[in-house]
């Protein structure tokens, strides 16, 4: 059987073994298997782009006209403010909720769990519409001492503007997700790390701040970046209550000039740009927190807040 192979002569294996070093290795090339699907896919993608781009119903001139129009830019601003405010308040409330669920107080654990259950269990859209219509439940809002008449009250509809309703809905909904992300980050820190911190004389609070938090941040950051992008796009939902964001503005414009697709294109371009910038930011932030990046202001801030030295 072996002898019938063309490369192995009558003298068997030895002659082939002797010549192996002199032979060139030719890698196997999957030419057809790689190129055919590639060409087909590229063709389909090109066809799709060209079809949309050259559609007579999509006026690129209009897209260009509105891309930097003042109302659109204001919408971008509102979207950014809503995203940042939601992120910050979501993190703060979520952090408190995570602490409650990690505590030894059964009431705090139950309240924290109930919050997450409710605000993660109902759709964001429903919560936004609810906050917008809060006046139907409480016509007046106020703070004061019950029964004394002292204090301050106001018409709910004056306090809960569409923007405030949007912020309440987004932040309270987001806090439930943040709570779970933060809790997961702290669960990922082994108990041994806290034990070791206690044995060098740290109190529990200091051990959490100096040891658990910086390690948890490394775990929390990737899902947090994901969450930021979800919030950024999720703000478009406030358009149902006229929140004044990018999508609201685009809808208001196409409501007047009927250039629906062109203005959705404008909105999509802005969302893509914003998400792309956040992705780049996330990449660098993760590198800094893992300590892979050199020097830099942010690294020093992070180190001074949580690090070992200085």
């Amino acid at each position: 059987m072996v002898a019938s192979h063309p490369d192995v002569g009558a003298d068997g294996h030895d002659s082939l073994l002797d010549r192996l070093d002199t032979l060139t290795i030719v890698p196997r090339r999957a030419v057809v298997a790689r190129w055919v699907p590639g060409v087909v896919l590229a063709g389909l993608a090109a066809w799709l782009v060209v079809t949309v781009a050259r559609s007579p119903n999509l006026d690129w001139g209009v897209v260009g006209d509105y891309l930097f129009a003042e109302p659109v830019l204001r919408g971008v601003g509102v979207t950014l403010v809503l995203t940042a405010a939601t992120m910050v308040s979501g993190l703060l409330i979520g952090g408190v909720l995570a602490l409650m669920r990690q505590s030894r107080n059964p009431v705090a654990i139950a309240v924290g769990a109930a919050y997450v259950w409710f605000f993660r269990g109902t759709p964001l859209l429903v919560q936004l519409v609810f906050w917008f219509n809060l006046a139907l439940l409480f016509p007046r809002l106020g703070v004061g001492l019950p029964g004394t008449g002292l204090g301050w009250t106001a018409e709910t509809n004056h306090v809960i503007t569409p923007f405030v309703a949007a912020l309440c809905g987004l932040a309270l909904h987001e806090a439930a997700y943040m709570a779970e992300i933060i809790r997961g980050g702290f669960l990922a820190v082994p108990q041994g790390q806290i034990d070791a911190a206690l044995t060098i004389g740290m109190t529990r609070g200091r051990a959490v701040r100096r040891i658990a938090v910086p390690q948890a941040v490394q775990v929390i950051l990737p899902p947090l970046g994901n969450q930021f992008i979800l919030i950024l796009k999720g703000t478009s939902m406030v358009s149902v209550i006229g929140g004044g964001d990018l999508l609201t503005r685009s809808q208001q414009i196409y409501g007047m000039n009927y250039q629906v697709i062109a203005l959705l294109m404008v909105a999509s371009i802005w969302y893509l740009v914003l998400v792309s910038i956040s992705s780049v930011g996330q990449y660098f932030l993760e590198r800094v927190v893992r300590g892979q990046a050199e020097g830099g202001l942010l690294r020093r801030v992070v180190r001074n807040a949580f690090g070992g030295r200085r």
């Binding site: 082994p190 790390q193 070791a196 910086p214 390690q215 490394q218 070992g308």
Partner: peptide, 8 residues
């Protein structure tokens, strides 16, 4: 298991 602080 040593329990060195992994981030330092």
């Amino acid at each position: 298991h040593f329990n060195l602080f992994t981030h330092l």
